[in-house]
Amino acid sequence: MLHLLRLEYTKSEQAAEPHIKDHVAFLDRHHAAGTFLVSGQTVPSEQGGLIIAAGVDRATAEKIAAEDPFVHADVGRYTITTIVPGRTHPDLAGLLALDTP
């Protein structure tokens, strides 16, 4: 399963600024663990950001999102969409531990 975690700011970007260092550490920790495959800001950045997570179930993805310092500081919230890939590019199949059709 893949999970698309959409971070939406609940307050201004300026309100989130004091928490960026901790948020980046949160991202780094989950990238190093292999759970986060991609993360980045949306364009325009005022909307928030997106994360693609893999290798965990939905409940774990929800727990991880709840641990984000932006959530703890009440400057952000997540919407999670779970995806069961039906087709995968062969170059990604190994990374995602999925069989290609």
Results as ranks from 00 to 15, higher is better:
63 K>D: 14
51 I>H: 02
47 Q>Y: 11
34 G>F: 04
13 E>S: 11
1 M>H: 03
34 G>R: 10
77 R>S: 08
51 I>R: 01
52 I>S: 01
78 Y>K: 00
16 A>T: 04
79 T>W: 00
79 T>C: 05
27 L>W: 08
81 T>R: 12
79 T>M: 09
73 A>K: 03
76 G>N: 09
64 I>P: 02
50 L>G: 08
38 V>C: 06
62 E>F: 03
65 A>E: 02
65 A>T: 01
44 P>G: 12
67 E>G: 05
94 G>K: 06
77 R>L: 02
16 A>N: 03
83 I>N: 02
28 D>N: 15
95 L>V: 12
41 Q>R: 15
31 H>Q: 12
78 Y>P: 02
46 E>H: 11
20 I>S: 07
43 V>W: 04
78 Y>C: 01
32 A>Y: 00
97 A>R: 09
100 T>I: 12
85 P>M: 08
58 R>P: 05
16 A>K: 09
29 R>H: 13
42 T>E: 15
19 H>D: 03
60 T>W: 05
80 I>M: 06
60 T>G: 00
26 F>L: 07
9 Y>G: 06
53 A>L: 09
13 E>D: 05
4 L>T: 05
48 G>W: 08
40 G>M: 05
2 L>D: 00
13 E>R: 15
33 A>V: 02
30 H>Y: 15
43 V>C: 09
80 I>D: 01
75 V>N: 06
57 D>V: 07
60 T>A: 11
43 V>H: 10
84 V>M: 04
55 G>Y: 10
39 S>V: 14
70 F>P: 00
70 F>Q: 05
87 R>T: 11
77 R>M: 11
27 L>S: 02
49 G>M: 11
29 R>A: 14
32 A>F: 02
57 D>K: 03
94 G>M: 10
43 V>F: 08
24 V>R: 14
76 G>S: 14
5 L>M: 14
11 K>H: 13
74 D>K: 15
18 P>N: 06
22 D>K: 12
93 A>M: 07
59 A>V: 09
93 A>K: 01
63 K>V: 00
19 H>Q: 04
5 L>Q: 05
98 L>Y: 01
13 E>G: 13
3 H>Y: 10
37 L>V: 14
66 A>F: 06
25 A>V: 04
29 R>V: 06
16 A>L: 10
40 G>K: 03
95 L>P: 00
3 H>F: 12
76 G>M: 01
4 L>R: 02
101 P>C: 04
5 L>S: 06
87 R>D: 12
40 G>H: 02
45 S>H: 11
70 F>H: 12
96 L>N: 10
44 P>C: 03
10 T>C: 09
32 A>P: 00
4 L>W: 11
51 I>W: 06
17 E>F: 07
100 T>D: 06
50 L>R: 00
22 D>S: 09
69 P>E: 04
6 R>H: 11
53 A>F: 08
12 S>P: 05
25 A>N: 05
47 Q>R: 15
101 P>G: 10
